[in-house]
Simulated assay, not measured.
Amino acid sequence: MQTYLFRGPGRIFGVTGEATGANLPQRYAPWTAVKAVEMIRGQPMPGVEVDDCLDDLEVYGFHVTDAHVRITEEAAL
């Protein structure tokens, strides 16, 4: 799946399937585009738990971490 990596304040990172990042939580804005990344379930990627990320994209439309710790559920509130 084609995904887009964004950086928020501090050590916040977001991943989404939307190139603009418009669906990322505003509470962690501003978001700065970092790069486009192809993620494939079961294939490791440094610094990203790919399967967890893809699961979050299916459920929430985005995946958010703080210092590599998943915070997607609280970000979705």
Rank of each mutant, 00 (worst) to 15 (best):
R7Y: 07
G21Q: 05
R70F: 00
A33V: 05
R11S: 11
T72P: 05
D52H: 13
E49R: 14
M39E: 00
M1I: 10
E38T: 15
P25H: 02
K35H: 07
E58Y: 05
L5F: 11
T32K: 15
A76I: 10
G21H: 01
H68N: 13
V37F: 06
K35S: 12
L77A: 11
Q26L: 04
E18A: 15
P46W: 08
E74C: 11
P9T: 04
Y60Q: 00
Y4H: 15
A19W: 09
Q26M: 08
V37L: 15
P44R: 15
F6Y: 09
P9D: 02
P9A: 05
H63E: 00
Q2W: 11
A76C: 08
R41C: 03
E74M: 14
P46M: 09
E49H: 12
T72H: 07
R7P: 02
G21A: 10
E73F: 10
G8N: 00
V37Q: 12
F13E: 01
H68W: 10
Q26A: 07
R7F: 07
D51N: 14
D52N: 13
L77T: 10
T32H: 14
Q43G: 00
G47S: 11
T72R: 05
E58W: 06
C53Y: 00
I12R: 00
C53L: 08
T16W: 02
V69G: 00
Q26V: 05
C53R: 02
T65V: 14
V59T: 12
A33C: 02
P9C: 04
D55G: 08
M45Q: 14
A22E: 09
E18R: 15
E18L: 15
H68V: 15
G21V: 11
L5G: 07
Q26P: 07
G61Q: 06
T72C: 05
V48W: 13
T32R: 15
M39V: 07
G61L: 06
F13M: 05
A33Y: 14
V15A: 01
Y4T: 12
